[in-house]
Design a protein around this nucleic acid. Structure first.
Lengths: 197, 197, 197, 197
DNA sequence: CATGAATGAGTTTTCATTCAT
DNA sequence: GATGAATGAAAACTCATTCAT
């Protein structure tokens, strides 16, 4: 019993160490020993709790995804009610996404890193695919309440996610001020909200 | 005389080999010997023509950027005239960007790879910054002819580039059909053209 | 506990292997793998215990220096007393230096090697400087007991060390018999002892 | 005819380049291309005029030795006559050796380098052996004129050469001022001259 | 379970040497 | 003769992984 919990804590400790490492170095250049050092454990331990570097990354990814998904639904539950208009719901969705995801430059950096890994790693790509499909689907559902057009809602949600991820990438490369990015996001999203009628 | 040409050809041969390698493996996992093998030359040659792996990448990047920039201006010159309306010009710009860049999945993959490298490599990031700034600027100029509003034109061009790059990334991860992506692009761009009045 | 000892033993084993290698090849031509082979360990081990080739050399140097310094003071303690005359003390010093250092051709070879490394390597030169300054100082102190003249004692000790090291070098190049060298050393040193009055 | 001269000039040009290189880097780290660059010629040329790096060094050594030998005999011829006393001759010998050899730190550095090479390279060691034997013999002859004792003269000359080379080495490692070294040399040599009666 | 010593494959880089032009 | 392109062997170093204690 306690065993399993200790195990889970150790694994958590390790994936948090990976997060810290990824802020400094690309995954490829992050050695098992780097992660172990950051986690404050012996490097042998990592091979005990994980089958290898890849599994650490995959587990890390699962945790990040779960965390943001949970946060999203909690946020939406806290900021919208059954009476909220579609525009209000969409607006709250933008609030969450902007501040918790797109404008979080550290997260953006890590995601650019993960996209790249996903290019060549099937398992990572598969997880990313699920994330984006789920995200697009969530957006589509919210949008559908306003536009009532499947195809249009789907396209709008895909475009939205593409735009947001593109902004995340550009913010990492161009390093504009938060304000600049926030304004561009706001202007774009205002258009969308206007379209919802 | 012939010497300089041989040099340039060899360098070209090598960066083309890098291109081929990047379709299979991330840059970090692509060894000098891999590139040499792909180029059909001895690995020592790569150190003769380049100071190291990084310079090969940087040169590759320069070539790619130059190629697309040249192609873009040639395309625009061939497809627009002084009499073209702003909408026609923007429309042609979309034509080029969609088919030659955003929907070219191989190019998209390579750019995701380069974004990631730029995360930690100053020189690469600096080149990327220039590319995106130039691209945004080019789009802004074209858009300005229609909207006559600096701030708006800038925001629209940033949003456009973010959207296109986001679409490129999503197409790499989600691997939708060309048609799907093309439709999403078209729908989005139609909105923009409509906005130009 | 045992861990630290294993570490120290391995390091010792490795620097002893370096000693053996230096009898055969110059340091520059001695590869990490050569040293590993001589030590009977995997080459990776050398990178585990040392940061690189230079550190192995520096550690080796420290050990050699410490060993001879310790031996010297032990020898002097064993062969002289508070009642020994200055001449007797100087004589014992010569005994030690001749047999343990100057006439040890293997040591001489290694020191010629180290001189050369010190030519271009600051850390090695710095260590050599300390060694020679200490040696000159030790000789000066002993000589001072007899000549009571600072300048003279200093010059005599510098000359002595220069002569001894020159003899070491010549013995390496000319490869005379031990006897020849010993006689030259004895004759020279007899002069010095005579000078002490 | 002219051919041979051109050849000889090229070879000279190359060994002078080696001299320049040796002031900066150890021989082992000096590449053929380094020497070629210093000589202002194509690296292929070096393989045309020499069979390899070693032959360049050997030729260089021959030239240095010849130069100093010639200079020495010229100097002695210019500064002594048949009427000069043995003490005067020895004194002039010291003058030459001190200023042209022992106190020339650049030459000393290069000789430390060459000693080291001679440790492991038979041909170089053989040349060095000849040099030192000749030098000792030259000194012995001069000293013999005063002391009339074969064994003593031999020992004195060996000691002298050992001392001078030891001083050269120490000056390279300890980097004392020229004055300090000159004084130590003078004091030592005064003793010798006094011994000559 | 934890530790850290050991392994060995793999990477970038340097360079003497060769050789076609 | 001169040039510089090409070769391939060898170097230092890194690191995921294994395993005995």
């Amino acid at each position: 019993m306690g065993r399993k919990i200790v195990q889970e804590e150790r694994r958590l400790q390790i994936i948090e160490a990976l997060y810290a490492c990824l802020l400094k170095k690309p995954f490829k250049e992050t050695s098992i020993k780097d992660i172990a050092r950051a986690a404050g454990v012996n490097h042998g331990v990592l091979h005990y709790y994980f089958t290898g570097k890849e599994e650490i990354l995959l587990t890390f990814l699962d945790h990040v995804i779960l965390k943001y998904k949970t946060d999203f639904y909690e946020y939406m539950a806290a900021h919208t009610t059954a009476e909220s208009t579609p525009r209000q719901v969409v607006s709250q969705m933008f609030n969450f996404v902007n501040h918790r995801i797109t404008l979080d430059r550290r997260l953006s950096r890590i995601f650019v890193e993960i996209w790249e890994i996903g290019l060549y790693d099937k398992k990572v790509r598969s997880k990313l695919r699920t994330v984006y499909e789920e995200w697009i689907e969530a957006a589509r559902e919210v949008i559908m309440r306003a536009v009532k057009n499947e195809t249009l809602a789907r396209r709008m949600s895909v475009s939205l996610v593409a735009f947001l991820e593109g902004m995340a990438m550009l913010s990492v490369i161009l390093e504009p001020t938060q304000a600049e990015s926030a304004e561009t996001l706001a202007a774009f999203q205002k258009r969308i909200i206007d379209m919802l009628g």
